[in-house]
Amino acid sequence: MEYVLSFLPMIVKMAIVIGVLLLLPLPLTWLERKIAAHIQQRPGPMRVGWHGLLQPLADAIKLLTKEDHIPAEADRMLFAIAPVVALVPPFLVFVAIPFGDPIQVFGTTVTLSLADLNVGLLFILAVSGIGVFGTILAGWASNSKYAVLGSLRSIAQMISYEIPMGFSVIGVVMLANSMQLTQIVAAQQGLWNIVVQPIGFFVFFVAGLAEAQRIPFDLPEAEGDLGAGYHTEYSGIRFSLFMLAEYLVLVALAFLNVLLFFGGWLGGPAFLPPVIWLFLKVGFFIWVFMWLRFTFPRYRYDQLMTIGWKVLLPLSLLNILVSGFLML
């Protein structure tokens, strides 16, 4: 009993994380539409609830009750699995993300993370790499030309940017002497990494955008041009799982940017708890992502690949060499 109880905090934390993450997309979609609307000088959703606040809920209900059809020639098994496979990695990323230093609750020490892994950063990169499986399964299982092509493009993009992404955080690891995220944050006590690793941040930020397939790198789905990429054939609730995953990737990315380069929960004014300060920064990043979406045009596919391989990759490698040399 004692043993089982020792897991209790962890289970509670997990319930909170899952709950928040499941609900988070609802306000985020609303937010995104509103931001889009205001950037384009229009009101956006206004009908359902105050200023359309309940619009996401309505959308959710619609998706839940919408007819779900599977193409006749699809691999039904893989078709069904694909959204789940796409959904798992972003959740797993949050297992390793810490939200602050350990705090005292009712006399016991509670860590503000599900698992503060000693190879946390590597774990996150590895897990996010699994995300491509969802994409490839979705495209392949649909057995539709648009879907297959979309998934190929999507995968090529993701794997292309995964490399500079991985290389770009090496500098951060070097500075912290650790891959543990709490250590990395702690190492930014005096100076945020953005100051010493500007190139690293730039590469990470851009690569992250591409990984999340946000504009200006949203070619795989580019609704106007390409059907809807790898999830062309998905509809209803399955489609919504993909959407959920995409939003979660966005959030995770914001967290990583903050944790790795912007001091995480550190450096905030004393009156705010560190956790809130962290969320504020994350919120800022999410806003930046949305802002970018409605500001930049989309790249051509060859430009996209060129940026990934010919700009970011050499840049990140150089960054490693230079920052290693400077550090010693």
């Binding site: 289970i11 997990m14 789940v84 798992v88």
Partner: peptide, 18 residues
């Protein structure tokens, strides 16, 4: 044991999706 949450998370998400 650090990785227990990982497995729990996978299980939870799969269950939730189901």
């Amino acid at each position: 044991i650090d990785y227990l949450p990982v497995f729990l998370m996978v299980a939870a998400i799969v269950a939730l999706s189901a």
